[in-house]
């Protein structure tokens, strides 16, 4: 599967990780184009069904990334996101959506380098893992 290019859907919060992605760009850092950023105001608004839908539509991985604990612009949205990730990690791997495909990270606004590195590593890992099985199956 040398020619496999994974699609990664990343839900990033406006205040931290999106700003970090912006910083990566303005700093002319490069990272793979496999990632599709979806800017949300807070990781606390990422409904589990957004993630489920992304997988059923064929995403090879989903990244949720927001502010570090204690830094949330809305005080505690990232803690709620962490509980929802815990929940989804108890459900999705049972049905063949490998746990490696679902990631939560904290990347602060000044962490452009960290953002670029995270995407690079994630793309490598998913290339290794291969495509999401639901990608070509008519599973909806």
């Amino acid at each position: 599967m040398d020619d496999f290019e994974p699609t990664i859907i990343a839900f990033v919060c406006n205040w931290c990780t999106y700003t970090a992605a912006d910083l990566a760009g303005t700093s002319r850092l490069t990272y793979p184009t496999n990632v599709r950023l979806i800017r949300v105001m807070c990781t606390g608004m990422v409904d589990p069904k957004y993630i489920i839908k992304a997988f059923l539509e064929g995403a090879d991985a989903v990244l949720v990334s927001g502010c570090h604990p204690g830094d949330c612009h809305y005080i505690n949205g990232n803690y709620k996101a962490r509980r929802r990730m815990k929940l989804l990690k108890a459900i999705l791997p049972r049905y063949g959506f490998s746990e490696q495909r679902l990631k939560l990270t904290w990347i602060g606004a000044s962490d452009g380098i960290q953002f670029a590195r995270t995407i690079r590593e994630m793309v490598e890992e998913i290339k290794e893992l291969g495509p999401n099985e639901a990608r070509n199956a008519a599973v909806v």
């Binding site: 604990p69 204690g70 505690n76 803690y79 709620k80 962490r82 509980r83 929802r84 990730m85 815990k86 929940l87 990690k89 108890a90 990631k103 939560l104 990270t105 904290w106 990347i107 960290q114 995270t118």
Partner: peptide
């Protein structure tokens, strides 16, 4: 996953209705 049992006790909060600052570090990658 949440060390919870539905219907066990009125004292236990529903897992998705609460959160704590220091918990579930294992689901965070970085």
């Amino acid at each position: 996953a949440f060390d919870y049992e539905a219907g066990r006790s009125l004292e236990e909060d529903p897992p998705l209705a609460v959160f704590r600052e220091d918990e579930f570090a294992e689901v965070v990658e970085i």
